[in-house]
């Protein structure tokens, strides 16, 4: 990462307008054709150098090429944190991260157990359109590059461990592109609504609400919404599997007062287990609790939730026998009992 940052510092000043921050190489593309497509004719050597390619070398399909940027690397914003979240740049010591901070390109962000963070990778100040990435507990990402050129947003993230969710773009927003790579595998998609997980030697991807491209072994697989696949980087992605659809939640009922932590839902056929999520917002950009249950209920002996005047939201995601997380159930709103908080 420090190498990437150094390269960005050296080469980030000269530039050509209308360039994305990166491209995922498609079959048949060359450095020259990509430079032509991106308006970077004459800067092929820079592209090769940024991406670690030798002179005259051509990238393989599925490789991620970094493109010269007009400006220095743009910053991301820490939208929400919950629990213990740290960031570090290069070899620096990790430091606690709080909401509202800005992240320099190349910063590594990590969450501890039971901790979450949502990064606003790119924000278009003019339209307020944005791309958000949520890290689940015990996850680490490096935000390699984020870029806004005109209305076009693009982000490149390396997933070191754990799981991330690219939050769906809101209705009517210009879709942004977020590319995630790990273990030599790459996913790239527009509009968010994707989840990626690092597994032993593989990147598991789930296209929850929007299509997603997944690359590996110089091959590309297009996932439709509601499909998942794994890529090990050196081999073509696994065939797409259909994701399980979220269950119907039973108790507590929507908009009810959460007096007892008795969560129940209807069983999902072929589900091996479930993941219950609680967040302080209906979009789950501020998750505060994720629990796994092998059965269609969760009845904890103890539960800790941050008090919020508006309450919290919960949903359930079925997990199939291959480990794929399915489509979440509809979020259910819960209010805290009167007299349980207030400041």
């Amino acid at each position: 990462m420090s190498l990437t940052l150094g390269i960005l510092t050296i080469f980030g000043l000269a530039g050509v307008a209308e360039a994305a921050s990166h491209v995922v190489v498609q079959a048949g593309q060359t450095i020259e054709s990509i430079a032509a497509d991106e308006g970077l004719v004459g800067r092929e050597a820079e592209i090769r150098q940024l991406s670690g390619l030798g002179a005259a070398a051509q990238p393989s399909p599925g490789a991620v090429l970094l493109l010269p940027l007009d400006r220095g690397g743009q910053e991301s914003l820490v939208l929400t944190t919950y629990g213990e979240v740290t960031a570090r740049l290069g070899a620096a010591t990790p430091r606690p991260l709080v909401s509202g901070e800005r992240l320099a390109p190349g910063a590594e962000v990590c969450t501890a157990a039971k901790s979450f963070v949502t990064l606003r990778l790119v924000l278009d100040e003019a339209t307020r359109h944005h791309d958000d990435l949520t890290l689940m507990p015990e996850s680490c990402v490096v935000v390699e590059r984020v870029n806004l050129e005109g209305a076009e947003r693009s982000s490149l993230v390396s997933l070191g461990q754990g799981s991330v969710t690219v939050q769906p773009n809101l209705d009517g927003h210009v879709p942004g592109r977020v590319t995630v790579r790990a273990w030599g595998a790459v996913t790239s998609g527009l509009g968010g609504g994707h989840r990626m997980h690092v597994e032993r030697g593989a990147l598991r991807a789930e296209a929850v609400s929007q299509p997603l491209e997944i690359y590996g072994g110089s091959a590309r697989l297009d996932l439709s919404a509601g499909e998942g696949s794994r890529s090990r980087g050196d081999a073509p992605p696994d065939p797409a599997v259909k994701l399980l659809i979220g269950p119907e939640t039973l108790l507590p009922e929507d908009h009810s007062v959460l007096r007892a932590p008795d969560f129940t839902w209807s069983p999902v056929s072929r589900a091996l287990g479930y993941q219950l999520e609680i967040a302080t917002d209906p979009y789950f950009t501020e998750p505060v609790l994720v629990m796994e249950s092998p059965v269609a209920e969760w009845l904890p002996e103890a539960m800790l939730l941050p008090w919020r005047a508006r309450g919290v939201y919960w949903r359930v995601i079925p997990v199939d026998r291959f480990g794929y997380l399915g489509v979440p159930s509809e979020p259910q709103h819960l209010r805290f009992p009167p007299g349980s908080g207030g400041g």
Binding site: A260, A302, M303, L304, P306, W307, G341
Partner: peptide, 10 residues
């Protein structure tokens, strides 16, 4: 009990 939080105990 944590400030600003609600603990449920069964």
């Amino acid at each position: 009990v944590v400030s600003g939080h609600v603990v449920y105990l069964r």
